[in-house]
């Protein structure tokens, strides 16, 4: 009688292969990207970027698994996993990083606990104030 609800409250977004999304894309739940995205991506849940995906955007998610190509900065609040086919042209930041052999990263990579990130930001703002 009643429909089943998944953990994300039915908020899962799928961008399939053969579909192009342009603009500021935000989702309150999980996101799976197999197609083309240009603009920005924010997922409050988990993000999966498959091998067929092509993204030209800054990407933010809670957890992310990437097998495709991203041209832009990638930020995961918790865990980030780069599979062997992943190509990242941009900076990466996360709390926990796993990289499989074959993945390529062109950019800075910051893996830090929140306290360390906060310390770094405080130091940067202090330096900026002194300057």
């Amino acid at each position: 009688m009643f429909k089943k609800e998944d953990g994300s409250g039915g908020n899962e977004t799928i961008i399939a292969s053969g579909v192009k999304v342009e603009g500021d894309f935000t989702s309150p739940g999980n996101v799976r990207i197999e197609g083309i995205v240009i603009g920005s991506v924010r997922a409050d849940g988990d993000l999966v970027v498959t091998e067929t995906a092509s993204i030209e955007a800054d990407v933010t998610a809670t957890n992310a698994v990437v097998a495709g190509e991203i041209k832009g900065n990638l930020s995961a609040a918790e865990k980030l996993e780069l599979l062997g086919t992943a190509k990242i042209n941009g900076n990466i930041s996360c709390r926990m990083l796993t990289v499989e052999g074959g993945a390529t990263i062109s950019g800075n990579c910051q893996v830090a606990q929140e306290k360390a990130v906060a310390r770094e930001r405080a130091r940067e703002s202090k330096a900026a104030a002194e300057a």
Partner: peptide, 23 residues
Amino acid sequence: GQYTVSPVNGGEICVSNFSMDAN
């Protein structure tokens, strides 16, 4: 009002409020 979606090689857009399929 935030982003546009387009099928690269054509297709169909379906805006579903109440699915005719139970699942």
